[in-house]
Nucleic acid binder design. Structure first.
Lengths: 348, 348
DNA sequence: TGGGCCTCCCAAAGCGCTTTAAATTTTCTC
DNA sequence: GAGAAAATTTAAAGCGCTTTGGGAGGCCCA
């Protein structure tokens, strides 16, 4: 059933039927009723592509599946983020278009999006420090918003980000207050902006306390369970091991826990751990009492906020860039406690 | 730059330019060269919607974001599956269209897809036992393929599935061979087909060994860490506790491990654990020596296989249903060992 | 009674592409 | 070198929708 046959069945012109269904005022209420009823009865729905061609809008938001180039690892945050974002996109009639990057030229995808008119806007995930996608998108004039920020990019752009620096500064301060002096940082890849900022916050807190960061206690890699496990084992064997770990990911923290328990150490007593918790729906940090003390910020909520902002940007092309900084909560769980008098140490 | 201006710039008709770019034979090689060069030079790319309208194809595959209705939990497998599927879809020029379900009527989404011509095909995730989406899609005639199967659905349909029954039968047999007699099953939601089949395999193995399944040792819920933890604690406090756990998910198994270590029990010595491992990129089961003995089957690979099958179904509307059963590997890690002479037990 | 002004509806153009049917040019064949 | 056949190219229709620019009545007022 298309517009033409619906119009014929009603004995009306396509114009009138189209207007009736799209809420234009030049149609009498009686006619509109009649049209709407018929549309439901015949199960008429306007063809997406025809409508898009006529209106010039795709009603789609593009997104590249965020896989690390190194191990083709899919960002574990992706599912929840997408769930949040598309929920709010859907409220505006938008769907999400997902694509893989052939080779490693993500810029090519965006140029294609633009040239083909395939999407009306784009979401950028996991920006690096000095991410060049931002300049590209500004240049080609495709509406976009970044989930995260990019240190070093000076031109204006829209973003929704968690205050990572602040979160990790607070978390570090919290550990310092508990008497910890040797605090390890198990960080994500520091070419990524969020990890860069977290380290910054960590170092700031240490320096404010008159301490300097020990390079041996800072490590950075993809946030796997294995990574947390290996680094914890190694650091616990140091002459002067850390008494606390600050960890950028719930998943790596599971590895930390494994290493600690293997070493017969009790988390929160022998060694303290604070994590950043994206509040992933499939990996919740405990219901009432969190397992881990954490800086918490729901990535799903970030998706919702970001989607709303993008909808604004698209509906008003002259809208100035939207910047929204979300603060992380510091929730106290059972993985932290006062620094032990004598640091636990593993034989190397 | 659109087709018209490109044709004008070349002094050719739109027809010829279109044909040249789409590889039709009625164009001289010289002309084709000239057209292709100009297309690159001007950065011409055909408009997606216009092309779609003319050809009647959307070049999009629809998918509903798989969230459990209960806790809005996003299937943790989603990211990796999508990465696999869209990689192979992309090879055929297809992208993925993601949408949320407004309310709880997923069928409505598929009818919309069909009526609007928004997508050329659909991927169904996480089918239930007797899933009614299959009948609906067959009825409305939208090409689709199921990731998983649906016990109780008799009409033909296309699917790609892991041999869950076999995997869990083998895993159970393996534990039986190690001397375990009290084997717990920490299963996913058993209204879902994969969980239903896994239980079936588990029970078959027990019965083949002349044992009957103890309802107390079987539990089913959403596969969270918390779930694994709680159930393990509870079961270890039984009069006659299990000496082995069979767990449907890596994530719940992390909870099992937490409970065991809290109880000072050594996995693989005091208690054995086998998991199903979807080989998620962000939650790998160890590099050389797997942490967990597991029935392993890459969900990303399943996505690739499924995408190829769907491409076939779409290119040939008369293609008979494609059914592909993937076997899971049984990989032995360090979480299993001979049954202890005396079962470890927690004070209740 | 006629003109002006609403209200409601319609014909047709246009969005940017593919494809059918036909026209033109080139190449053979004898 | 004429005529047929083959190779190229083109004009125009069509995909299904929105939207522009009118147009037909009906109503009101002078």
């Amino acid at each position: 059933m298309n517009l033409k046959s619906l119009a014929e069945a009603l004995g009306l012109s396509q114009t009138t039927v189209s207007r009736a269904l799209n809420g234009y005022p030049e149609v009498s209420e009686a006619t509109r009723k009649r049209v709407e009823e018929a549309a439901v009865r015949f199960g008429y729905r306007p063809n997406s592509r025809a409508k898009g061609l006529a209106t010039g809008r795709a009603m789609l938001i593009g997104q590249v599946i965020p896989t690390s180039t190194q191990h083709e690892m899919v960002n574990p945050v992706f599912g929840d983020f997408v769930a949040g974002a598309s929920q709010n996109l859907a409220q505006h009639g938008y769907d999400m278009l997902l694509t893989r990057v052939p080779g490693d030229d993500e810029g090519k995808v965006y140029r294609e999006f633009r040239a083909r008119g395939a999407v009306d806007g784009v979401i950028i995930q996991a920006p690096d420090v000095k991410d060049d996608r931002i300049a590209l998108l500004n240049r080609i004039g495709l509406p976009f918003i970044v989930h995260g920020r990019s240190t070093g990019v000076t031109e204006p752009y829209s973003w929704v980000d968690v205050n990572n620096t602040q979160a990790f500064r607070r978390a570090t301060e919290f550990l310092l207050q508990l008497g910890h002096r040797r605090i390890a940082l198990i960080n994500g890849l520091e070419r990524m902006d969020f990890a860069f900022r977290r380290r910054k916050g960590y170092i700031q807190a240490l320096e404010n306390a008159g301490l300097s960061a020990d390079p041996q206690l800072m490590c950075t890699d993809e946030m796997t369970e294995q990574f947390g496990y290996m680094k914890t084992r190694r650091m616990l064997a140091f002459e002067d091991p850390p008494t606390a770990f600050l960890c950028a990911s719930m998943i790596s923290a599971v590895g930390i826990r494994r290493a600690l328990q293997e070493a017969q150490l009790v988390m929160g007593r022998d060694v303290s751990v604070i994590i950043h918790d994206d509040d992933l729906s499939y990996l919740r940090n405990g219901e009432e009492i969190p397992i881990f003390t954490a800086t918490r910020s729901s990535v799903r909520h970030a998706g919702e906020v970001l989607a709303d902002a993008l909808m604004q940007l698209i509906s008003d092309p002259d809208h100035p860039p939207i910047n929204q900084l979300l603060e992380a909560q510091l929730v106290v769980g059972s993985s932290t406690g006062p620094a032990p008098l004598k640091a636990a140490r593993l034989p190397s």
